[in-house]
Simulated assay, not measured.
Amino acid sequence: MTQHTSEMRQARHHVSRPVLWALLAVFAVCNVVTSVSDLPVLVGMGFGLLTLACAAALIHQHYTARRR
């Protein structure tokens, strides 16, 4: 049971890493656009937090994979 769960986690990391990189790029561009435009500051902060969350998830995956 533990080995199956471990294999599922490894497969999920391989799938989610490219998705996280794509989301990181999209959210960073949205953050730049909202910073330059006249949109409310909270919209820009939201995209900034989403960008930070994607970066944190990628860092976590990097260090988790490195320990194995």
Rank of each mutant, 00 (worst) to 15 (best):
L52Q: 00
P40C: 13
V26C: 07
T34K: 02
A25Q: 12
T5D: 10
R17M: 06
Y63A: 01
C54D: 03
Q3T: 08
M1G: 12
R67D: 07
M8P: 08
L42F: 10
L24S: 08
T34G: 12
L49S: 05
S37M: 14
L52S: 01
L39Q: 01
I59N: 03
N31S: 10
I59A: 05
M45W: 07
L50P: 04
N31V: 10
A25D: 06
V33W: 14
R68A: 03
T34E: 03
H60P: 00
S6W: 08
T51H: 08
A65Q: 11
H4D: 11
I59Y: 00
W21D: 14
Q61I: 00
V29L: 15
V32D: 02
A56L: 05
L58Y: 04
D38I: 00
Y63G: 00
R66Q: 03
N31H: 08
V29T: 08
L58I: 02
M8W: 05
M1N: 07
V19H: 13
Q3H: 11
A56D: 01
T34P: 06
R67E: 07
G48K: 03
L49A: 05
V26W: 09
A11L: 12
M8E: 05
A55M: 02
T2F: 09
V19D: 11
L52E: 02
V19E: 12
L49I: 05
R68V: 09
Q3Y: 07
E7Y: 04
V43T: 01
L42P: 00
S35E: 04
N31M: 13
G46M: 09
N31Y: 11
F27A: 10
H62Y: 00
C30A: 06
V32S: 13
M45E: 12
H14W: 14
H62A: 01
E7W: 13
Q10P: 00
F47L: 05
V32M: 13
N31E: 12
L24Q: 08
Q3R: 07
C30M: 14
S35G: 08
T64H: 09
F27I: 01
A57W: 03
F47Y: 11
Q3K: 12
V19K: 05
V32E: 04
H62Q: 11
C30T: 03
S6T: 02
N31F: 14
